[in-house]
Design a protein around this nucleic acid. Sequence first.
DNA 1: ATTAAAATTTAGACAAATCTAAAAATATTA
DNA 2: TAATATTTTTAGATTTGTCTAAATTTTAAT
Lengths: 219, 219
Amino acid sequence: MNYSVSEENYIKSIYHLQQQTDTVTTNSLANELRTKPASVTDMLKKLQTKKLIEYEKYRGFKLNANGNKIALGIIRRHRLWEFFLVNKLGFEWDKVHVIAEELEHVSSADLIERLDSFLKFPQTDPHGDPIPDTNGKMAFIKQLNLAEIIVKKNIVVSSVGSQSPEMLEMLKHYHISIGTSLKVIKHFAFDGSIEIKVLQYTPCIISEQVAKNIFVHHD
Amino acid sequence: MNYSVSEENYIKSIYHLQQQTDTVTTNSLANELRTKPASVTDMLKKLQTKKLIEYEKYRGFKLNANGNKIALGIIRRHRLWEFFLVNKLGFEWDKVHVIAEELEHVSSADLIERLDSFLKFPQTDPHGDPIPDTNGKMAFIKQLNLAEIIVKKNIVVSSVGSQSPEMLEMLKHYHISIGTSLKVIKHFAFDGSIEIKVLQYTPCIISEQVAKNIFVHHD
DNA sequence: ATTAAAATTTAGACAAATCTAAAAATATTA
DNA sequence: TAATATTTTTAGATTTGTCTAAATTTTAAT
Ligand SMILES: [Mn+2]
Ligand SMILES: [Mn+2]
Ligand SMILES: [Mn+2]
Ligand SMILES: [Mn+2]
């Protein structure tokens, strides 16, 4: 089966919202897609007819197994293109999302498998998010929030909560990007800020808000 | 201004038809786009409102200067993606057209300029067709039909009339691709077939129909 | 110059995706 | 539990792009 650009965007958004709450609401999806609740209801009916979601009027909805597989296919394409844009075309990672949002809808399966191979089968996109394989299997990376790290062991930045230019600008200033190794040195109870040390740089202090937007894993 | 996928496909098709006849007819465009004449008329009105064509009811139509520029932008994207698909992803050149037909509509200008640079500013696509530059300037390559070559000097294959898998298969068998150097040895008046010699291979005979689909330029 | 054929346009309909305003269902609060 | 607020759905409209069938215009043929 083949899905329209609009259908694909809905499917992907439902998938992402489900990571937070198992069953999704009409309003949250409308908000995510910057559209109106009435439009969401219309599309839900269509997705139900096409057997991609479980949906009961007024009760919320979720992707079924089939819908999940479709979603992971779209996410695979999105993240492979993002990797291409950053690592081959030299884009900054705050610029690639909007472009990948279009490229993800190009429908050739052969294209994506060849792109994957050309990129040497990357495991994560430029934001640290894992890339599903052809069968929709996605590595689960146990991520911890930097704000909650206590031990003074080496940790590695694996992804970020915000992909805004503002975030990127600040991370650059701190010499932090995906894959950067660092250590937590001290917590300040007063405002929740923490002192960290990035390898080869002098220690610095980041606010709690920044820390909460940085996800890490051990060694 | 931004144009829909449908509008872009119409604009590009009008451009291509204009290469043969300066002013285009409703039927020919409908045929090119595999749609119905009534649909073409509808779109023509829209393109006229958007000031992309000159159009007089029942009298045919053509792109104006603005429409021409838009068309060349789409063709630039199409051909750059085709080059990418063949030279980076390893597609055969009979497979790339349909995919480029989708990729050409991805709208980021930055994307295309970076792609161009990544590909080292190619001058022609995998079918030998010239790639317009950012400003819509396109090199004109004086092409001659192989069926009409008489002199026994070295000539270079610059493009092909058909991009079908059948054509590709046969050209491969003859060891001919874009850029191949060859010589015309003899014409057979009986059926119009000609004997050619591809460098490093023994001479062979190709039918008039094949020859008519091969375009060449001198040295 | 008529008439017949072909090309083109209009009229009216339809599917997809969206919207606003109103109605219905559910959740919250007093 | 009853009133109120919030969420969700329905009803009806709009835009884009397409279609068929009928009307109109142009072109070709007698
Ligand atoms: Mn998208
Ligand atoms: Mn990403
Ligand atoms: Mn296209
Ligand atoms: Mn081409």
